[in-house]
């Protein structure tokens, strides 16, 4: 799939759809936080009690965790471990791979259960995969005609970033 080697681009429409899938999952799974990151550690969208956690670090560490687990899987001849689960005293983290390149993370406590989370995640993952394939189609259709917003970036623009 060519899209894998390109930058990931997300537009308003897909972003809204992803956000609404996450919002529903958050309610249905009785979760504290749900968020979606790509395998490189970039956060795409999140929903829940976000002010209490550092979501950027969470995204990066999740991706690192999945990458390490992928490495382990390959070592023993598995393609991937599609679900990871970390159980804590109060909070638990459920991590699953969506459409090969995204990671769906659900953080929940005793108000929910692993069974419920797994059930709801499965449904949400299917919906997310649909959005993802739509994104891929769109990217393929637009192909060359998409002009990067950075196409006309100047040295001055870049220097300005470092001016302070």
């Amino acid at each position: 799939m060519a899209i894998l080697s390109q930058s990931m681009v997300i537009y308003e429409e897909e972003f809204e759809r992803i956000s609404s899938v996450l919002a529903r999952l958050w309610v249905d799974a009785n979760a504290k936080i749900v968020f979606l990151v790509d395998k490189n550690g970039q956060q795409l969208a999140a929903k829940g009690d976000l002010d209490k956690v550092d979501t950027t670090s969470l995204a990066s560490l999740t991706a690192g965790n999945v990458a390490a687990t992928d490495g382990l899987a390959r070592l023993i001849g598995e393609k991937e471990f599609s679900i990871l689960f970390h159980e804590g005293e109060r909070d638990n983290i459920h991590i699953s791979i969506v459409g090969q390149r995204l990671i769906l993370v659900v953080i929940f406590d005793e108000r929910s259960s692993l069974g419920l989370v797994r059930l709801r995640v499965r449904k949400a993952a299917a919906e997310l995969e649909e959005v993802l394939s739509q994104m891929a189609d769109k990217a393929a259709q637009r192909g060359e005609e998409v002009v990067s917003p950075f196409a006309e970036i100047t040295d001055e623009d870049i220097d300005n970033l470092f001016s302070e």
Binding site: S5, Q6, S7, M8, V9, I10, Y11, E12, E14, F15, E16, D38, N40, Q42, L44, S148, P149, F150
Partner: peptide, 12 residues
Amino acid sequence: MSFINYASREIN
């Protein structure tokens, strides 16, 4: 791989 989000107008 850079990630461009048009919805939140961010690039990572």
